[in-house]
Design a protein around this nucleic acid. Sequence first.
DNA 1: TGCAAATAGGATAAAATTATCCTAACTAAA
DNA 2: TTTAGTTAGGATAATTTTATCCTATTTGCA
Lengths: 144, 144
Amino acid sequence: MFSKACEYGVKATIFIAIKSFENKRVSPKEISKEINSPQAFTAKILQALVRHNIIDSVKGAYGGFKIEKAKISTIKLSEIVKAIDGDGIYKGCGLGLKQCDQDHPCPVHDKFVRVRDELNYMLESTTLEELALNIKSGTSFLKV
Amino acid sequence: MFSKACEYGVKATIFIAIKSFENKRVSPKEISKEINSPQAFTAKILQALVRHNIIDSVKGAYGGFKIEKAKISTIKLSEIVKAIDGDGIYKGCGLGLKQCDQDHPCPVHDKFVRVRDELNYMLESTTLEELALNIKSGTSFLKV
DNA sequence: TGCAAATAGGATAAAATTATCCTAACTAAA
DNA sequence: TTTAGTTAGGATAATTTTATCCTATTTGCA
């Protein structure tokens, strides 16, 4: 469904959010340990998230990644996914046709609408804050 | 969502079904032309579908691929997808956790349930016959 | 029986994704 | 100002997915 990069990106962002609640910055090392991901690869994904203004980075000693507290409740899951995997999962045809719409549908076009709508709703209605709070309270988990 | 191989596999199976209605066998060449896919790669996928007993192959001169007419209405879209992509799309965790269930959920586990259920319902309730008839009647399309 | 036409399948290549390594650039603190 | 610790980013490698090529095997028909 999502790429590995996207999975890591979502989990990393959640972890950064949790630490940001406590005004702490985190390193790729800490993050990859916490979400069980390859460190250097995770660092690349963090770069992309910085470029998309989803997380902030502070270079140099005592640096690290963070998210402005006030911003955490405004970030939607969809933004993170789009930043890494693009919008193909929303817009692309289920069978890979270049052109696929009501006028020229692929065989599963109509059937697929509900799946895509459900996915879209879920990604748009879920906030980073919500995900982070559930991890913090032990309701959900980032690894194993 | 689905792999390229799976997209080709679904489209190829639909085309074979249409031709099988007319008691005609088809070659990978004909198929790949009709669904706009690479021929040799498509042939590999057809082999897999044969091994999974979804389509039949007849070797030698005047051979080709076909599906028993009576079988066409019994084949579900889910069977084709499972044969090629496996059942990860049903069962796997949305964020790639090895273990992810009600007792130990990933951050999006609950949110994801409805998406997965919708996908599952769609794949289980759609038959090959239905897809083939829509192509035949010009209601949907296999390429461009 | 021999030929032509078809699928089966192994070997290989190309492309995309995932992952690692190394150095440059930056920054707070001593 | 130097140093240590940190992110940025280019280069490269490994793996997986996608795609191609070639030959073996099979089969209907002349």
